[in-house]
């Protein structure tokens, strides 16, 4: 199969190379010295880097939670709309996703920068007097990530809610369940596979994000993706950069494995 050959040479071989080099050492002038050691993996535990992983995980988790809170009512509304409107709403959710990611991130730079639109609007109505600093902060990164990945949450949620049997929900209402208990004890358990799929689809790209923290985060809001780029292109410590990339990939693959485990369990 020609596809397998192409992918073998231009994907699996390079990935294998990353794995091999993650055990080597940095040469004096930035190249690779072929030794075998676990030093790169041990170096990853440096508090300086631990802080970056922690920030990545925390920002990705926060992005997932915010997307879920925003996306659930939206997905529920779409799934219960008349069929014609469902198609229109889904299209409206997908369209921004087709717009270039850099452009969508730049839009938030334009809005959030200290003399930007957000500040101009707030100061013209007298709410603020001094410039507000939102751009180049974790908050800005969070906004950018939520903005970028919200559709990934809405689509699987919609698919799960659309399949949910209306009569089950009505039965719960008829039995005098409160709005909250209908949600917590009927709707949420029955749409769990969609919730998990949506959360993973948001969490995975968020934790490895590069563009959003690079443009909206500035130097103090580095995430793992930026650290890898920094190690490769600035410090030129390829073995260490490779070790970090491999750890990131392992994390992502574990997440996917968990998802498939949960999905098959729900299906059975």
């Amino acid at each position: 199969m020609p596809a397998l050959v192409w992918m073998g040479v231009f994907l699996f071989l390079p990935l294998l190379l990353v794995l091999v080099i993650s055990f080597a050492a940095r040469g004096t002038y930035g190249g690779v010295e072929w030794t075998f050691s676990l030093a790169n993996y041990l170096n990853m535990a440096d508090p300086l880097y631990l802080r970056i992983y922690a920030r990545s995980l925390a920002l990705a988790a926060a992005t997932t939670v915010v997307c879920l809170l925003l996306g659930f009512p939206l997905a529920y509304y779409i799934a219960r709309a008349p069929a014609r409107w469902q198609a229109v709403w889904l299209m409206l959710i997908i369209i921004p996703f087709w717009t270039n990611f850099l452009v969508r991130t730049y839009a938030w730079m334009f809005i959030l920068r200290s003399e930007g639109l957000f500040h101009t609007v707030l100061s013209s109505v007298g709410l603020v007097t001094s410039p507000i600093e939102i751009l180049y902060s974790d908050t800005a990164v969070l906004i950018g990530l939520v903005y970028g990945y919200l559709p990934f949450m809405v689509l699987p949620l919609y698919a799960a809610i659309e399949r949910l049997d209306r009569s089950v929900v009505e039965a719960a209402w008829d039995l005098y369940a409160s709005g909250w208990s209908v949600f917590w004890r009927v709707v949420l358990p029955l749409t769990k596979p969609g919730v998990i799929a949506g959360c993973l689809l948001v969490f995975i790209p968020s934790v490895g994000a590069f563009i959003t923290p690079d443009l909206l985060g500035g130097a103090r809001s580095m995430m793992v993706g930026n650290l890898i780029q920094h190690e490769y292109l600035v410090v030129r410590d390829w073995p260490f950069g490779s070790a970090i990339s491999f750890a990131l990939m392992a994390l992502v693959l574990v997440g996917i494995a968990v998802y498939f485990k949960v999905e098959t369990k729900v299906a059975v």
């Binding site: 994907l11 490895g208 590069f210």
Partner: peptide, 8 residues
């Protein structure tokens, strides 16, 4: 992660 693919 796309960054991983890029560096590889």
């Amino acid at each position: 992660p796309e960054v991983m693919m890029g560096v590889a």
